[in-house]
Design a protein around this nucleic acid. Structure first.
Length: 427
RNA sequence: GGAGGGAUGGCAGAGUGGUCGAUUGCGGCGGUCUUGAAAACCGCUAGGCGAGAGCCUCGUGGGUUCGAAUCCCACUCCCUCCGCCA
């Protein structure tokens, strides 16, 4: 959410931003409602001010019965007028708030212009895609052969885009999660295990709602929703608080299951487990002071943390600077890390590193008191540390061996009981 | 699932229809004193809208009333007991 005063002063900028971001928002309607609300509120405030004066007069009238009766009569008139005005004031306020949720954030000047994902700009490439001395398999063939994946029965249990990991794949998943948790906590992040379901306000605060509502699983009986990322729960957990500047930055690394409906993606990534409804993720999250330079610094640091993990797993990857047309509404700027997937002969997204300035903080009402006493909205940032299935795909495909087994990168071996190979030879 | 109690500022905790946006304590900030610190003492210290006058906020939303932290209704959350249960 942007500051309403800023929108009032820069309507053309907002319209331009919405166009560049491919997002629809009716700025004129918003400003019309705002003007109407302010006029209505002004009238109501005048009435309330007089009401307060009349109430004081009633108190002070004491035994002067005539003055008291007269003031009460005026009070009755004011109450009647307010009864007309107040429902309208509430209605306009609600409408304004709803529209405000659709106004996107302002991208940083360093965000490339572009219509969609094809216009994202590659900013670095690390590691060489491996030259295989044998015909490499895709993750489905590989994991099936090694008895690590059962797609059919996963679908039987939970429908399309569901899967069952088996055998060494389960150990691999747990190892990866713990590997990520250990590496990031070693950098001073506090480990969290957060609820995988959350109330609506958390999703609004984080900006998943209202626009992404159809991508979220709902539990209507309980007015809860399944989170698509731990980010939702973390944004919600401090909602309404005023933190102390001395306690910033707050750095979390949270593990959670992630649930995604993937509505509207029917033809996409139908093979294997590239796009699934449920996976595990370790997420980095930072709450810091309202300072652009500091946000930028943490954004880079979060990227570096993620790169370090990917490098330790010996996966070739590249980093993209996400263009205006592909950047989520709430983000000021975002980098994606894409890991090399041999069977697709291309890089695929495994991490998403973003900063938001105070956009999420305003929605979630998350502020801090500076050492000088002033209260401001915090800045928030987050980046994936490790997402289970996509990392599993990249790892098994990149580290497959001629006999169908998977080589375990050195950094991961301590989390797999020292094993250097997963699966038994089968090719 | 059943019964009862509760929700007030950063925290604790008064306040049961008008002078209460709110007693007090703790914490925090500033000062006096001190070589420095502690202690003691003094002062300041909720948030939001508004250029300002002023307006709003005592869990949330309605209602009663000239007037609501206070009364009524609904909801949410927390606590205690019972039941069920990983």
């Amino acid at each position: 959410m942007l500051d309403l005063a800023f929108i009032r002063e820069h309507p053309d900028l907002i319209k331009d931003v919405a166009r560049r971001r491919n997002t629809a928002v009716d700025v004129d309607a918003l400003l019309a409602i705002d003007a109407d609300l302010r006029a209505t509120r002004r009238s109501a405030e005048d009435l309330r001010a007089e009401q307060n004066r009349v109430n004081k007069a009633i108190r002070e009238a004491g035994k002067d019965k005539a003055a008291r009766e007269q003031a009460i009569a005026r009070g009755r008139e004011l109450a009647a007028e307010l009864k007309e005005l107040e429902p309208r004031e509430r209605e306009l306020d609600a409408q304004l708030h709803d529209l405000l949720l659709y106004v996107p954030n302002i991208p940083d000047a360093s965000v490339p212009e572009g219509a969609g994902e094809d216009d994202n700009v590659e900013i670095k490439r690390v590691g060489e895609p491996r030259a295989f001395a044998f015909e490499p398999l895709d993750h489905v063939a590989l994991m099936r052969g090694a008895n690590m994946l059962d797609l059919e029965r996963g679908v039987r249990v939970a429908g399309s885009r569901s899967y069952i990991l088996k055998g060494d794949a389960v150990l691999l998943e747990l190892a990866l999660l713990q590997f990520a948790m250990n590496r990031v906590t070693a950098r001073g992040f506090t480990a969290l295990s957060v609820p995988a379901m959350a109330k609506e306000f958390c999703f609004i605060g984080n900006s998943q709602f209202p626009r992404g509502r159809d991508q979220t699983y709902a539990l209507p009986e309980d007015e809860l929703f399944l989170v698509g990322t731990a980010e939702v729960a973390i944004t919600g957990m401090h909602s309404g608080e005023i933190l102390r500047e001395q306690d910033l930055p707050v750095k979390y690394v949270a593990w959670s299951p992630c649930f995604r409906r993937e509505a509207g993606t029917y033809g996409k990534d139908t093979k294997g487990i590239m796009r699934v409804h449920q996976f595990e993720k370790v997420e980095q999250y930072i709450i810091c002071r309202a300072d652009h330079e500091e946000s930028v610094q943490w954004h880079e640091d979060l990227l570096a943390n993620a790169e370090e993990l990917v490098q330790a797993l010996e996966l070739p990857y590249r980093v993209l600077n996400i263009c205006t047309g592909d950047l989520g509404d709430a983000k000021v700027k975002g980098y994606d890390i894409e890991c090399w997937i041999p069977s697709e002969n291309r890089y695929r997204e495994t991490h998403s590193d973003s900063y938001f300035h105070d956009y999420q903080a305003r929605r979630a009402d998350l502020r801090y008191r500076g050492v000088d006493g002033t209260v401001r909205y915090v800045h928030t940032l987050n980046n994936t540390a490790l997402a289970s299935v996509r990392t599993i795909i990249a790892l098994v495909e990149n580290h497959q061996q001629a006999d169908g087994t998977i080589r375990v990168p050195d950094a991961l071996r301590p989390y797999l009981g020292g094993r250097d190979t997963l699966g038994a030879p089968w090719r």
